[in-house]
Design a protein around this nucleic acid. Structure first.
Length: 497
RNA sequence: GGCCUUAUCGUCUAACGGUUAGGACAUCGGCUUUUCAAGCCGGUAAUCCGGGUUCGAUUCCCGGUAGGGUCACCA
């Protein structure tokens, strides 16, 4: 099947092509997400390709880390370095023969030549141009009789048609660039590896990539790519330019230096992959309706290149937290329990009092107070969970409600008598009916009689030992009848001692 | 600096010549409530500036301003 036939069949092929220079941050994942979603939506092919032609910047273990990151978010690929495919290999360092082949074609066409200059000579050209306040262009120094390329020197593309460039971008529309954007760029470095500028085009050609999805930093070099497409006589792909992701201050592009974290850090912090997916999908794209919460399936269904934004979107952690909450709410009860248990500190997990039943009971309480797993750790550290597992310790003065109507004289005796009465009422409740609604109902008229705050606050405090906690009825149900009464009696003893 | 590109509430965005400029996050207030959280209801808040085109500009054009990108033997 030749290229024209492929074109006719209109099979959409996109790719994500990271360099193995470290972890993947949200910018990279967002790019992958859009390329993937577009292929999925159109029943096309999504390829993962590793651009490892810069051996100096390569970081050991990056590839598996990148793969793990993409998989966590739910992105899968039809062809890639780990699973192979019809256009294998998918690591550029293993495709050097292809690049040599196309380089040879260009040499034969007289469109590529060896660069005879040393790095020092180039540097002085640059410096001179800089001093004269004009842009440096290699082609101003293009050698008249370049040596035969033997592989030890860089191979450059000879730009034969210096002109204004013009192309169409699926997001930005018509784009243009001045002549300065065109220069004799390096195709193959002196170390034998191709440059990105060259090899990504060869690979995209050989892998039949139809849509190039990437961020806007490549707009400036697109004229060079166009020159290469022309030199090789190949058809231009569709360009899909994504807006940059800005740092939280909205002032500059988000980069690793500005705190762009490894996406897997978000996993560690307890963000759900579906929430991260949702969040990333909305940095640079928005749906026609006003929905804010979206599943991957829904996203693929309504994703549309025409609705990709032109301007940069900021990274808003508050919004991510909110989205994560919304996704947490959508989890099943069992999943929520697992989630809560997962983030409990080991110190709590080891406690014999930590039963499945307790986990079951505290899950809703925890879930409505957190937006991510890290918050559970924080709650535990702040002692906001401890009272479920061990008896609270507190000062007896704190048992008194702030706007208590109890008179100062005999206040300990008065409050202890209130609590004794509460214990009496609770004792009457059958163990099986020791549920919050029931407890509240039984206690309510007495609470109304003496003043709600004067009994509900002390009760809650006796059960939790904290200024802030869930309501006493909920606490009583979770702790159970005997523990509840035991803790109330402890408070009574403290008061009358 | 050259070239390119972008511009709506504090933040992210909707609007494809005619809307009381909509929504979300954040924030503030109210309801509920013994406290916290959650929930519900409500408020404050925006078209960068200046010219055009048009009966009418957030929207189209030009200029300015500000932000971003890029000018590598990095991708």
């Amino acid at each position: 099947m030749n290229r024209n036939m492929k074109k006719l069949s209109k099979k959409i092929v996109t790719r994500f092509a990271p360099s193995p220079t470290g972890y993947l941050h949200i910018g990279g994942v967002r790019t992958a997400l859009y390329a993937w979603a577009y292929a999925k939506k159109n029943n096309g092919t999504f390829i993962l390709r590793i651009e490892d032609t810069d051996k100096e910047r390569e970081v050991e273990g990056s590839i598996s880390h990148i793969i793990e990151s993409l998989k966590w978010i739910g992105i899968n690929w039809d062809e890639g370095p780990d699973i192979g495919g019809p256009n294998a290999p998918y690591k550029q360092s293993e495709r050097l023969d292809s690049y040599k082949k196309y380089a040879q074609i260009l040499i034969e066409k007289g469109l590529a030549y060896a660069d005879p200059y040393t790095q020092e000579e180039l540097e002085s050209f640059r410096k001179k141009a800089d001093e004269e306040k004009r842009p440096f262009l290699y082609r101003d120094h293009r050698p008249e009789n370049p040596p035969v390329w033997d592989g030890s020197q860089p191979l450059r593309l000879k730009i034969v048609d210096i002109k204004q460039s013009e192309w169409f971008d699926e997001v930005r529309g018509k784009l243009t660039a001045g002549e300065e954007a065109l220069d004799d760029f390096i195709l193959i470095k002196s170390d034998g590896y191709p440059t990105y500028n060259f090899c990504h085009i060869v690979d995209d050609l050989e892998m039949s990539v139809t849509h190039i999805v990437r961020t806007d930093e490549f707009i400036s070099s697109t004229p060079k790519f166009l020159a290469l497409y022309d030199a090789l006589g190949i058809e231009r792909p569709y360009f899909v330019t994504l807006p940059p992701i800005m740092a939280p201050d909205g002032k500059k592009k988000l980069g690793k230096r500005d705190g762009a974290k490894d996406v897997l850090d978000y996993k560690k912090e307890g963000y759900l992959p579906s929430a991260m997916f949702n969040f990333l999908a909305y940095i640079g794209w928005s749906p026609e309706d006003n929905r804010e919460i979206i599943t991957p399936e829904e996203f693929i269904g309504i994703f549309d290149l025409a609705r990709i934004h032109k301007s940069g979107g900021g990274f808003n952690i508050d919004k991510l937290d909110w989205i994560n909450r919304e996704h947490l709410k959508k989890l099943s009860y069992e999943e929520q329990e697992e989630y809560v248990f997962k983030y409990l500190p080991d110190s709590l997990k080891k406690l014999p009092t930590l039963t499945n039943s307790i986990i079951h009971s505290i899950t809703p309480i925890v879930m409505e107070r957190i937006s991510k797993g890290e918050d559970i750790v924080k709650m535990a550290e702040d002692g906001e969970l401890a009272y479920f597992f061990e008896k609270p310790i507190y000062d007896k003065e704190s048992l008194f409600f702030k706007s208590s109507k109890i008179s100062e004289s005999d206040k300990y005796k008065t409050l202890s008598s209130y609590l004794e009465h509460a214990v009496f009422i609770l004792t009457e409740i059958d163990e099986r009916s020791f549920l919050k609604e029931n407890i509240k109902e039984k206690l309510w008229s007495y609470a109304e009689e003496i003043g709600r705050g004067d009994i509900l606050w002390p009760m809650r405090y006796a059960l939790s030992g904290l200024d802030k906690s869930p309501d006493p009825f909920t606490l009583a149900e979770i702790l159970g009848k005997s523990e509840t009464i035991s803790r109330l009696n402890t408070a009574i003893e403290l008061l009358i001692k």
